Computed example of a mutant assay.
Amino acid sequence: MAYEDEFDDYEEELRSDRRRRLQLYFLIVLVAFGVALALLWNRIVITVQSGEAGVLYRWVSGTEMNQIYGEGLHLIWPWNHMYIYNVRLQTKERNYTMLTKDGLPVDLQIAVRYQPDLRLLPLLHVTVGPEYLEKIVFPETEAVLRRAVGQYTPEQVYTSKRGFLESIVISSLTSVEDRYVIVDDVLVRNVELPEAVRLAIENKLTLSEQQKAYTYRIEIEQKEAERKAIEAEGIRKYQDIIKKSLTEDLLRWQGVQATKDLASSSNSKTVVIGAGKDGMPLILGGDR
């Protein structure tokens, strides 16, 4: 009987030891799982922020070409990878030094406003990758700018004549949009020329504006002279017409009428008929 009790105690001890080992193994697995989850959390739980889109690369099948992951929370296997793209309209600046038609250097500060084409985001990722700004946008823009600037003189570049900006924008849009990127605009923020060239151009522009002002003044004086000539011609014609109608009898009759009006006024006192030159009436005022 004592032997059976000892055997039962031994079996109970073995079962207890087995339970402890299982609990220990479970605890180890749980801790390992927790550590792995903590280490791989950023590879499993993917958050796509507002204004972003994701392209998923599967370790087995490669990039998913038919699905674009929008804003929100996404769960993926840790051996896969999600590439996040900013799909908002963005603006980046870059400085370039280029040669003009005359071989003179000009420094341009260029601002490119762009965004990836959301509909073709997987193609952009496969063919170019996340560094598309440095790989296609700026290189294509630089190539277009060099061709355009090489066709203009420093003065034309400095003053942006002959549709300079428009030609850059149109060419850049045509070149870059074929690479799955939408270029909204290309702006020349600043143009810097060598000091001597810049001063010469500014002096020429100042003299040109002065010449325009002088030409405008001359045109005004010419118009004023024409106006005075027309006015003088009108006065001369008027006097010629009046001379033809003014006879001595008419003047004498006008004098009689004036004398009559003066005689009937309250200030006239004495009227001598036939006095004065040519027999015109003579009026003597009573106040003198």
Rank of each mutant, 00 (worst) to 15 (best):
E219L: 12
S266T: 05
T215K: 10
L205F: 00
I182M: 11
R179N: 09
K204Q: 11
S265W: 00
T206G: 01
L193T: 02
K204F: 04
D240T: 13
K244A: 12
Q239P: 00
R217S: 04
R179E: 10
L262N: 01
V176K: 03
E192G: 02
Y216K: 10
I235P: 01
I201K: 09
G255Q: 05
K244C: 00
R189V: 13
K243T: 12
L199R: 14
K244N: 09
S264D: 04
L246E: 07
Y214L: 15
T247Q: 07
A200H: 09
V191Q: 01
S265K: 09
D249Q: 12
A225I: 14
R236Q: 06
Q254N: 08
L199D: 07
A200V: 00
R198V: 00
Y238I: 00
K260F: 12
E221R: 15
N203M: 11
E221L: 14
Y216E: 12
Y214V: 15
L205W: 01
E177D: 12
Y180I: 03
A232F: 10
N267D: 03
S245L: 14
L205V: 10
R252E: 14
K204W: 00
V186L: 15
E231W: 03
A263L: 10
E248F: 06
E233P: 00
R227Y: 05
Y214T: 07
V183M: 05
I220K: 09
K223M: 07
N190Q: 15
A213H: 01
N190I: 00
E202P: 02
V181A: 08
S265N: 06
I218H: 03
E192Q: 15
I218E: 11
R198I: 02
V191K: 10
N203P: 00
R252G: 04
R189G: 04
L207Y: 06
Q210L: 13
S208D: 06
L187D: 13
L207D: 09
V186E: 03
